[in-house]
Computed example of a mutant assay.
Amino acid sequence: MAELIYFAYGSNLHPLRLLKRVPSSRPLGCAVLPDHALHFDKKSVTDGSGKCRIGAEPDCRVHGVLFSLRADERPYLDRAESLGVGYFLEDVQVLNAAGEQVEAFTYVANPERLDPTVQPYCWYRDIVAAGARFHGFPADYVQSIARRPVWEDPDPARRARQHELVRDCLNWRPAEA
């Protein structure tokens, strides 16, 4: 089966979150996207809150993780990312932990969905921060995520489900191979 290399930088950073969406996903290691910055101003197609996006910005870096996944499972991720409406696919050149260039696909925000007035729900921000902590991103980068202003999710059932996912992510450890 063909394998794809995916660069995750938002809520898919945490392996548990991505495994729930794409069962074949497995982390390959950390990477950075140079000359880009992380923003939370992509308006969600489903709930109207702020989601992560990458934007070109000189002298900045977006920390992320490279994941391998089966090509036949990418449609699961496409659905989760509202491909064609919320995000589009783009190939990017990232630097892996050894400083080598690696080509991967990622999701870039549809410019029509950008809204500087939106904020992420607290659970979304916390999932992104949990992934950044899990992978040992620099402390100042993790803190810049964790201090992001948030909205409280008005849907109590979704809020409870997502806070449970945050707790699961914080406690999750990969199975020994």
Rank of each mutant, 00 (worst) to 15 (best):
L114E: 05
T106G: 02
V92Y: 02
V102Q: 10
V92E: 01
A97T: 10
L95Q: 14
P111N: 08
L95H: 13
A97P: 04
A98I: 03
P120D: 03
P120G: 07
A98M: 10
E100S: 06
E112Y: 07
P111Y: 10
D115Q: 07
T106Q: 02
L95A: 14
P111R: 14
N96M: 05
T117A: 13
G99V: 02
V94P: 15
Q93F: 06
A104Y: 13
V108C: 06
T117G: 11
A104H: 12
Q93D: 05
P116G: 11
T106V: 00
V102S: 05
Y107S: 08
R113H: 04
V102N: 01
A98R: 10
N96Y: 07
G99N: 04
T106R: 00
F105P: 00
P111V: 14
L95P: 05
L95W: 10
V108A: 05
L114D: 00
E100C: 04
V94I: 03
Y107E: 14
T106W: 01
E100I: 02
T106I: 02
V118I: 06
P120M: 02
V108K: 10
V108I: 14
T117P: 05
A109K: 01
E103K: 14
Q101G: 12
L114F: 12
E100W: 01
Y107H: 10
L95K: 15
N96I: 05
E112H: 12
N96F: 09
E100Q: 12
D115W: 07
A104C: 12
E100D: 15
Q119I: 01
V92D: 03
Q101V: 14
G99C: 09
A98W: 00
E103I: 13
T117F: 07
Q101L: 13
P120R: 01
T117V: 06
A98F: 00
Q119A: 06
Y107I: 08
V102M: 09
F105T: 00
Q119N: 04
V108E: 06
A109W: 08
F105M: 06
T117M: 07
T106N: 04
V92N: 03
A104S: 08
V118W: 08
P116Q: 13
Y121T: 10
R113K: 15
L114I: 15
P120W: 01
Q93A: 13
Q119K: 15
Y107T: 07
E112W: 06
E103L: 15
Q101K: 10
E100Y: 04
G99L: 09
E100N: 01
Q93K: 07
Q119G: 00
E112A: 15
P116V: 09
P116E: 14
Q93H: 06
Q101H: 11
V102K: 06
A98D: 12
A97Q: 08
E103Q: 13
E103Y: 04
V92L: 06
P116W: 12
R113C: 09
L95C: 10
F105I: 01
Q93W: 08
Q119S: 06
V108R: 15
G99S: 09
E100K: 00
T106M: 04
P120C: 05
V94W: 05
Q101W: 02
V102G: 03
V92M: 09
F105A: 00
